[in-house]
Design a protein around this nucleic acid. Sequence first.
DNA 1: TGTATCAATGTAACCGATTACATTGTTTTT
DNA 2: AAAAACAATGTAATCGGTTACATTGATACA
Lengths: 346, 346
Amino acid sequence: MTKPKEVTIYDLARKLNVSIATVSRALKDDPVVSKKTKKKIFDLAEEMGYRYNHFARNLREQRTYTIGVIVPRLNSYFMSTVIAGIESVANNEGYTLIISQSSETAGKEITNAKTMFNNRVDGMLVSLAYDTDDISHFDQFIKKNIPLIFFDRVNDHPECTSVQIDNRKSAYEATTHLIAQGCRRIVHITATPKRNVYIDRLAGYKQALADHQIPFEEKYLLINNLSQEAGVQAAAEILQMNPLPDAIFAANDNCAVGCMIALKKAGIRIPADIAFVGFNNDPVSTVIEPNLTTINYPGYKMGEMAAASLINHLNGVNSIDATNTILLRSELIIRASSQKIISDSE
Amino acid sequence: MTKPKEVTIYDLARKLNVSIATVSRALKDDPVVSKKTKKKIFDLAEEMGYRYNHFARNLREQRTYTIGVIVPRLNSYFMSTVIAGIESVANNEGYTLIISQSSETAGKEITNAKTMFNNRVDGMLVSLAYDTDDISHFDQFIKKNIPLIFFDRVNDHPECTSVQIDNRKSAYEATTHLIAQGCRRIVHITATPKRNVYIDRLAGYKQALADHQIPFEEKYLLINNLSQEAGVQAAAEILQMNPLPDAIFAANDNCAVGCMIALKKAGIRIPADIAFVGFNNDPVSTVIEPNLTTINYPGYKMGEMAAASLINHLNGVNSIDATNTILLRSELIIRASSQKIISDSE
DNA sequence: TGTATCAATGTAACCGATTACATTGTTTTT
DNA sequence: AAAAACAATGTAATCGGTTACATTGATACA
């Protein structure tokens, strides 16, 4: 284990008979240093294989140029797309990401938050776990003026910006679309209404029913963890209903797909017997047959927006209070799984 | 923007009338400090909201407890699963991840490598981009004794460990399975055979053909980027073939799925007319109809192994030279898309 | 009782940058 | 030609830990 010594600004300064201050200034392209000196320094740095020591700077500047990201899960299509968006912006702006997953548990989320805090991230991007009730583990950031932006699974915190879509409106559109197809007994499958995304979707669903004089029925509300397997189980419950529902609006595509597969296996025709709408526009939605009607969710854009907004805050472009909520456009994508009218006439 | 001052070991030392050395030792639970003193220090640290400054340590120790991860794409099921595995191990061991994506281009991979290098990662985990020919951008790490582990898309570098599956064997099994189903005109869809994964799968495919006295035919080899859209295009090419092939072995599930959808639309029956085998065991493989036979790819495990192996190196548990290649178990999962014999009898 | 041993703590150099303030030499102004 | 203005560079303190080496005081041993 030889440990080749690192080249520092001291080495460069000594070789060129200038001070470390000049070297430091030259390396950050400070206009106060003459062009000639700069060139000498740049060339020598290149030649000697100098590399910048971020830790020295961070120690001195009390900044880290690091952004902490906490997501519920890394291995979901939606989340990895968001992260790809975040990464592209952060990378461009010279920020480094520390990414961790809460695995949908509040406990791990708290641990992760602590790690991020101790790593002195300059800012945080967070999407909350299913079962996080209390968000006091983020108070430490707020207390230290570390900007915190929630995305997707947000929390209505007075000091934080959030980036999301209009879940309520999207759910309203999805449900209205089903009603327009003649559906009246519409099941909604969703997760525990703790997180905004599920609360809002449920609200949109109820509103659409109300606006069309369809009473909301508790029995048509199925709560699970929205996994594909949960969709299969939901299908079993649905098959017990009498009369059968004529439509299902699931709060994500994965669950919808699991449910569709199970129902098809049971001989249900989709959409003729039961129409389907999902949420997210996950790639599986165009693989399942019939293709799944869903809400397009701009994940990459969401990542870009969240990161850009955070970095703007960090650079002092706009104050953290200026923006409360950034709403991204989302839209209903109508595919075969919900088109009763056309499919009946086929 | 008030900037509340940070509590440091100096503050703790002053309050307790001990030296910073004692505080530093106590905080890392050095047995040389008496229990009583330790308790005092811990309690005060808690009370005053002390937080550890990693940068000061990193600056002093010349270590960063950071691992750099470069992947071709973040938003693929396989990769995000691998990263989830890496994250879980790294987090447990107190390491932080810096993750970036090459977007499948050598150029961005080089930039990312430079960023990682300048961030002084303690080690690297890399999966190469499609079009990386020359891997000299990783020499800087090797020169500085920074361990580098490749996973999945590996490079046969004499100084690096690689974590992968036996692609050749898996492809051999997949092809042999198709031959056992009576297939003789087997198309192989894959990416440019630059990366080991594609080279090895092609080799396995060819070997299986040879072992069953089936001549390899160039026209049955389709090269594309393995996206779902590329699968659709491949379907168009396949429909031009006369006679039609009787099986397709695709180097990933996404491409297989795109191809299946397009062929089905054209009236081809699967597996009766054309049998299908994919690669990766992506979730879509159980959504597509018929369900896709594929190779199970232990992504999470691969991430865990790669991270654990790297951290072992870093902790000096085993030398970097000790291990050359770690092969993970993978297996053929037979589903309906390839079962000609059974499906004919249905 | 004198000395060796040891536990507990302290001193101070060091890691590699940034930057306020000081200094030097040159040009411009009057 | 002296004073003012300015461009270029230097000096030295600072960020918050780690740790080799030194010191202190108590106990064990002969």
